[in-house]
Design a binder for these strands. Sequence first.
DNA 1: CTGAAAGCGCTTACAG
DNA 2: CTGAAAGCGCTTACAG
Lengths: 346, 346
Amino acid sequence: MKKRILIHDIAKHLDVSIATVSLVLNGRAKEKRISDVLAEKVLNYVKEVGYKPNQLAKSLRSGKTHVLGLVVEDIANPFFASVARLIERKALEHGYHIIYCSTNRDPAKTKDILTMFEERHVDGYVLALPEGLESEVSALVRSGKPLVLFDRVLSGVSANAVVVDGATGMYEATQHLLAQGYKSIALITIQHGQTQMITRRQGYAQALREHTLPEMVDEIVLQQEPAQIISQMAAFFQAHPHCEAVLFTTNYLGLYGLEALNQIGWSVPKRIAVVSFDDNALFRLYSSPITVVAQPLEAMAEEIVKVLLTALQGGKQTNGMMLLQLTPKLLIRQSSIRPASPTRAK
Amino acid sequence: MKKRILIHDIAKHLDVSIATVSLVLNGRAKEKRISDVLAEKVLNYVKEVGYKPNQLAKSLRSGKTHVLGLVVEDIANPFFASVARLIERKALEHGYHIIYCSTNRDPAKTKDILTMFEERHVDGYVLALPEGLESEVSALVRSGKPLVLFDRVLSGVSANAVVVDGATGMYEATQHLLAQGYKSIALITIQHGQTQMITRRQGYAQALREHTLPEMVDEIVLQQEPAQIISQMAAFFQAHPHCEAVLFTTNYLGLYGLEALNQIGWSVPKRIAVVSFDDNALFRLYSSPITVVAQPLEAMAEEIVKVLLTALQGGKQTNGMMLLQLTPKLLIRQSSIRPASPTRAK
DNA sequence: CTGAAAGCGCTTACAG
DNA sequence: CTGAAAGCGCTTACAG
């Protein structure tokens, strides 16, 4: 209930001007030739009484909130949860706070989120968006607000972006399976046309094409219950009994897939080899640890923050957009290694 | 780049006073006897030009941000993710936005979060806190800010709270296992002294006491790698080969436990029966679906928002604190049902 | 019903 | 180096 201290109070107590206090607090003491002695006196007193400037007033006046808006697909997804956490930490080192929201792939909800961010006057945007937001993002870019897309881009939208080279990642994963001697390799992906999914599929397709092997693809509709998704996958496997290996394009598809295989009694890697794009803590713990194409989360977060800070500080928009493509890494674990043949024949 | 419209612009265009526009926009037209015709004219024009009041200015002036601060242990935990989502939705129906942060059980980080919320001038707090925040929360309560603890309370702190009756939940779960004929029943819980963990353990202990059966408890230290946690559990089971059933006090412990059982080759429910407190989507999908004590997430979110809104609007602090204890529900699935005995003997 | 004006708590030229 | 003052964009008594 104690009354909040105002900048006015501390100026009066120290018998200096409000401007002096404000300048010192904003690190502009040197620039304005305020004596070190005075600056220190101000700083000490401010700390002593625990004065905290009212951020609302600062923001209203300065036009800066020091808040970044982060849009993810689903914060419960380990990939987005990790990236969000890393971005939050790195942004904080530079004095920026993060507010984040999940779209759950709903374009309408996503528009609401963007509107909310605008109303909250975020200083910049970090966006992993569903399809259908093209015109909104273009408008945002034109408005000059710092913005960086990540994970996936939007077709026809020119904006800063940090993505992972899914084509190469999946290409290598598929090559790895081929090198293990598997020929009948399936891909399970989602139905959406998000750019990152398209490139991941391309990597798979290219590797097979080079070996003149046919594709075998199941496209999952995500707008259904997990149990249904698992059934769909189980049905797919049973309809393709010759399938020897499978690649999943996301970590949650991999999780569902393992359950589907479990339900139909196909053991990993004995009956079928498994690789998933994007790592997940559970993959490491699985009885046969799952081989994955791991995304460079730390690097992603770092580059995202870097791009945004550059835009935030420099504001040199003239240099055009920056598209950064990071390289993922194949982590070979047990699930994709062909078991030693049980035949003892010479 | 188009210039933002201000309330002044719309007042001038309609040739009315700024006050009129503000009053209409804030739904105080009737109260101030502004004619319906005029009010409608204002509303229409505002919609036409897409005028959005500057929230920073509104907040600075009114002292209200219409933002609630939500503190959870870990937003990647399905329990907190679900509750957060439900709270967010319900709060939004009443015009309140949510910002949330994860503590990861770190008291120091939690203090930072609370400071940040204060600096952002949140109108109210929803808190699932680690131990060690007692004095901070007491101070917050004294400050008169609307606040509600959930999931767990803090010892010695008098504050509004919405919790689940874990004692009854675990008591019933244990009784269920006893009714299935199991006598050697273990409990795996975490080491912390969080109140919700204590009550869950009490429910287990009481049920066993009533049958004069001994407790068998493993306390997990969470500050270690998942793989280590799993090893610890596996070692515990192997040190207790007579163990017939096990209860986990949280959903993530259950997940780790299933992996531990998997690694040591104990099948569920044949070798060991399993029940977990708190549901998880993966439990339903497990090859033997896991019996759980499900928490009433929807009701929790509803009550949390209700308590907070009451405090926010009424402000009748005089009525004292409100402690709401919700009843969880035992969902019996396959993992806790004693398999039919394989002996064919008459 | 309406207009003029103060004020929320800051920052920032501007003049000294 | 410093002080007085305007202004960020609203809300809200207070007079009319």
